[in-house]
Design a protein around this nucleic acid. Structure first.
Lengths: 195, 195, 195, 195
DNA sequence: GATGAATGAGCTTTCATTCAT
DNA sequence: AATGAATGAAAGCTCATTCAT
């Protein structure tokens, strides 16, 4: 296995946590280097700029979540069950690897100027979006989901889940995220189902 | 009419647009001053710091949107109709005063460190949240909405609408926001209704 | 009595306290105006600049202390008794009007650049210095003090007293200033006396 | 030899001179950087803030003077002779490294707000104060000095010497400092001696 | 005489990035 | 690959002073 690649992944994970926790602009390159026990100069041997690092991170996250969703999509279960599984995976990630979801919500979605060049549209999160699209289109094909505009469905799904994680992060939710799984997956399924 | 107050509001509106467009950290105080044809020093006579300005802006937006929702809540119409009206108002604002919604999504929700002191929880957006709460609880009381955790409903509503506006902002939506009003308000109502 | 003159004196006293407490550079003109319930603009009607105000203050203090010393110099007592009286007056002022002594030590003596133009040498404290000179020369004439260079005697007197007040201000002295009066006036007299 | 440490010392010496000459607040960081042929940013790699730099300088001076006094304290000579030697060293320093004494008097003693945190009391000048204390207590133990409050003696010593250097700095003294050595050390010894 | 909004130069400090070693 | 000293532009903020009212 490539040693340089391993270091790249290590940098991505450490930077991901710092960016998600302190914000993109409040995290400095020296901060990241120090957290890695690495010199700033050497960090630049792996990523040519702070912006490029930020873009690599979001691709990494999209790849990680896309894989999780791909597994669900390949399961021989109903769309209703898949819906619940997706909510579960999302909340599970929010719990086990909270920085990934935070990065998505608070770095990627929020600092668009950083991602202008190279991550236009959904380019850098396409692996993840593609799986949601597959989930949706298969549900429609099977007659389980209503045939509406994909983006309306996508906005519901991602906006809803993101909103809940955000509320959790703000300590506004009275209960644990897991306890909302049934409510939420029901709400989503009722909204999308062909009835 | 209070001249100083008028200037305050002018500053808020100009800064709101800049922050929403370029991001909080990429917008400098000199940028704002220049856009206002005003000296940097004088800007500080109105707002003691960049952070304080940011907080006043979100309160201003919350007040603006809260008022719009209050009008809807006072209408003698069914909860289903209110649901649609709220979606309409939100998208209308996203169209007429797009920076307000962008500010909410991309400045307020994303740069939590800026709003730490003084805007904990939902303090600075309480006017707005309160109206959503009234909409929801009245719907439940009337037997039109299912009695579930408020935050689950709130997350759905705001996450969904926010997600759609974000997708629009990224030029990902193939249609105009207005054309989604029916789909979306139906989806929301189906998700929340007592059936 | 002149109303404008009364206001001038009020400003001097308030500014004196602020400068002595917070330092010359850390005290702003708005600070002074606010403490006086006065507008900054109007303050400038009384003193054309911050520097000029500072210079007027030191003259005012020199005048005040000079008068106290003049009274002592006119008393029909021995030089030894006068020495003690001067120490007493100095410490009394340090206790009752501490800002005067602090101003002398921490504003006037320390920020020479401020007093460059107009207060060269001892011009602005001449009233005070003159009385010390009279005390010294009369003591020599009477044969009670050793005939040495005046400045050596002056440096002893003022350096010693200033040093003690400084130590008191730093909370380093274990006892009250008054309790040092005997020790100090004895030390000074022993140093200066013809023996 | 440690290159970074050498640079640290170089910065301290240059900043010390500027602060002593122009005053703490009238000396800017760019002033210091320019005098060092160094970038502003790099200066901050050595000292995290202007205040911290000021504190390091006073420690450096205290260390320098403390060493000089330590040598005197270790000499097998009478307290009277030590008294004279201390005055000599002080005036010698005032002549050879005048900025050190000026810094002590005009930066350290005067801008207390700068030294609030970290240099409370005499912490940052303890090396120097300690030697004066040793000189005094040994003199008392030997029966050569009167057993009085240490601070009264300390105030005399430092106030007197400081006052003389100040007068010299103001071009008020008609003679060179060295010519006062006998007068002054006699005055001090007469004041302090057990007689 | 009185007000306080307005100016703008200048301050301290930060930080992405480079480059000699 | 690795280091970290060095750069310098630019940020947020302050404040003495002015001036229209």
């Amino acid at each position: 296995m490539d040693k340089k690649e391993a270091k790249r992944v290590e940098i991505i994970n450490v930077a991901l946590e710092l960016f998600a926790t302190k914000g993109f602009y409040s995290t400095t390159i020296p901060d990241i280097a120090k957290a890695l026990n690495m010199s700033v100069g050497n960090l630049y041997n792996y990523f040519k700029s702070k912006d490029i690092l930020a873009k690599e991170i979001i691709k990494y996250i999209s790849h990680y979540l896309g894989n999780k969703l791909k597994e669900i999509n390949m399961m021989p279960i109903s769309t209703k069950e898949k819906t619940k599984k997706i909510v579960e995976v999302y909340f599970e990630t929010a719990k086990n690897r909270p920085h990934m979801i935070d990065y998505f919500l608070r770095v990627y979605l929020s600092n668009r100027e950083v991602f202008k060049d190279g991550c236009e549209g959904m380019i850098c999160v396409s692996e993840f979006v593609t799986e949601i699209m597959i989930y949706f289109e298969e549900g429609v094909r099977r007659g389980e989901l209503k045939n509406q505009d994909f983006f309306s469905a996508f906005g519901l799904f991602m906006g809803y889940l993101g909103g809940m994680v955000f509320l959790k992060g703000e300590n506004i939710l009275p209960k644990e995220l897991e306890e909302y799984i049934d409510d939420i997956s029901n709400n989503i399924y009722r909204a999308l189902s062909a009835k």
